[in-house]
Amino acid sequence: MKKWTFRPVDRSTPDMFPASVDDYLPERYLARFVVKVVEQLGFDPFIKSCSNRGSKAGHPSLMLSLLFYGFFFR
């Protein structure tokens, strides 16, 4: 059985503008809190249940962070 792979999550990668996420999000911004909470969740059972079809998907922690922030805080 082939191991499931996700696109890497690298929040320090420079963007087109500004240079990185750290440049435009304050240290105590709500999105940073959401990311810290979601990263503490266990995604192993979910990752093991994913099939390896189609193109690489976003990592479940990234997708869940976006969902929480977009649904509850905007």
Rank of each mutant, 00 (worst) to 15 (best):
P18E: 01
K2P: 03
V9C: 08
K3S: 10
S51P: 12
G54D: 07
D22C: 01
K36G: 13
S51I: 14
R53T: 13
Y69M: 07
L62S: 15
G70P: 01
L30V: 12
S20D: 02
R53I: 12
K2V: 05
C50E: 14
F68W: 03
G58L: 15
A31T: 03
F72L: 09
R28N: 14
G42H: 09
A19N: 03
S65C: 07
S49I: 06
S55K: 15
L62G: 11
K36A: 15
G54L: 09
R53W: 04
S49M: 12
L67S: 13
V34H: 00
E39V: 05
E27C: 02
S51Q: 15
S55V: 10
S51C: 13
Y24W: 06
R28L: 10
V37T: 07
G42K: 14
R53C: 04
G70S: 07
P18T: 01
S55H: 12
R7P: 03
A31P: 00
V37E: 05
E27W: 01
C50F: 14
G42W: 04
K36Y: 07
M16K: 13
A57M: 15
G70D: 03
Q40A: 11
N52S: 12
V37F: 02
L30P: 02
F17Y: 08
S20W: 01
R32H: 06
M16N: 12
L66R: 14
G70T: 05
E39K: 15
M16C: 11
V21Q: 00
G70R: 09
K2E: 07
D23E: 04
T13N: 06
F17W: 07
V38P: 02
H59T: 12
L41A: 08
K2G: 02
F71M: 06
D22E: 03
P8N: 14
M16A: 11
V34C: 02
K36T: 11
S49D: 13
P18I: 00
F43W: 07
L67G: 04
S61F: 07
F72A: 06
F17M: 04
S65V: 02
G54Q: 09
K3I: 11
R32T: 09
F68D: 00
S20Q: 01
F6A: 11
R28A: 13
D44F: 05
E27L: 06
F33L: 06
L25D: 00
T13H: 09
A31H: 01
P14I: 06
H59E: 08
L30I: 10
M63K: 15
P26V: 04
F71W: 06
F33I: 06
G54T: 11
P26A: 08
L30R: 13
V38W: 03
G70I: 02
P18A: 01
D44S: 15
V21W: 00
V21G: 00
S12E: 05
L67A: 14
D22F: 01
V37D: 05
G70V: 02
L64K: 13
T13D: 04
L64I: 10
P60N: 12
K48V: 13
T5E: 15
D44L: 14
V35Q: 07
V21S: 00
G58F: 14
P60G: 08
F33V: 06
V34S: 00
A31W: 00
P60Y: 04
